[in-house]
Simulated scan of single mutants.
Amino acid sequence: MKLRKIIYSAGALGLSMLMLSACSTTAKDSSSSSSSSAKSSQTVKKTQKPGKKIAGASLKDGTYKLVEDSYDHGYKVEMEMTVKNGKIKNTKYDQVNKDGKSKAKDSSYEKQMKKYAKIGPKEYISQINQEWASNASADNPGNLSAISGATNSSYTASNYAGQLTQAAQAGDTKTIHIANKAKYHDGTYKLEEKNYSHGYRQVYTLVIKDHKIDKLTYDQVDKNGKSKTKDAKYEKQMKKYAKVGPKEYIPKLMEEFAKSNGNMEKVQVVSGATESSNQFIAYVGQLLNAAQEGNARFIHVDNIVYKD
Rank of each mutant, 00 (worst) to 15 (best):
residue 258 A to L: 03
residue 127 Q to S: 08
residue 39 K to T: 14
residue 47 T to D: 10
residue 102 S to G: 11
residue 147 I to N: 04
residue 286 Q to M: 15
residue 21 S to H: 15
residue 110 E to K: 02
residue 45 K to S: 15
residue 166 Q to D: 13
residue 271 S to M: 08
residue 202 Q to S: 12
residue 194 K to H: 05
residue 23 C to W: 11
residue 124 Y to M: 01
residue 211 H to W: 03
residue 136 A to D: 12
residue 10 A to D: 10
residue 66 L to V: 09
residue 11 G to P: 06
residue 177 H to P: 05
residue 275 E to R: 08
residue 283 Y to W: 12
residue 45 K to Q: 15
residue 61 D to H: 11
residue 47 T to H: 10
residue 187 G to V: 04
residue 139 D to S: 04
residue 286 Q to E: 15
residue 185 H to Y: 10
residue 265 E to M: 09
residue 39 K to I: 11
residue 46 K to M: 10
residue 11 G to T: 02
residue 208 I to K: 05
residue 210 D to G: 04
residue 163 Q to L: 08
residue 190 K to W: 14
residue 71 Y to R: 07
residue 42 Q to V: 09
residue 168 A to I: 08
residue 206 L to A: 04
residue 116 Y to T: 04
residue 276 S to K: 00
residue 105 K to L: 15
residue 43 T to V: 13
residue 122 K to L: 05
residue 225 G to K: 03
residue 173 T to I: 12
residue 265 E to V: 05
residue 223 K to M: 07
residue 37 S to M: 10
residue 289 N to W: 04
residue 64 Y to M: 00
residue 122 K to Y: 07
residue 234 Y to H: 10
residue 279 Q to K: 12
residue 164 L to E: 07
residue 234 Y to I: 02
residue 6 I to H: 02
residue 72 D to R: 06
residue 95 Q to R: 13
residue 143 N to A: 14
residue 108 S to V: 14
residue 29 D to Q: 11
residue 161 A to F: 07
residue 271 S to K: 10
residue 55 A to I: 02
residue 6 I to E: 02
residue 169 Q to M: 12
residue 103 K to A: 10
residue 107 S to G: 09
residue 21 S to P: 15
residue 195 N to Q: 09
residue 59 L to T: 07
residue 155 Y to W: 13
residue 200 Y to R: 02
residue 75 Y to D: 03
residue 118 K to G: 06
residue 135 N to C: 08
residue 225 G to M: 04
residue 101 K to C: 11
residue 111 K to F: 08
residue 18 L to E: 14
residue 199 G to V: 07
residue 84 K to M: 10
residue 15 L to N: 09
residue 142 G to F: 13
residue 270 V to A: 08
residue 31 S to R: 06
residue 79 M to A: 13
residue 187 G to P: 04
residue 239 K to C: 00
residue 136 A to V: 12
residue 263 N to I: 08
residue 119 I to H: 12
residue 203 V to S: 05
residue 76 K to Y: 12
residue 205 T to E: 15
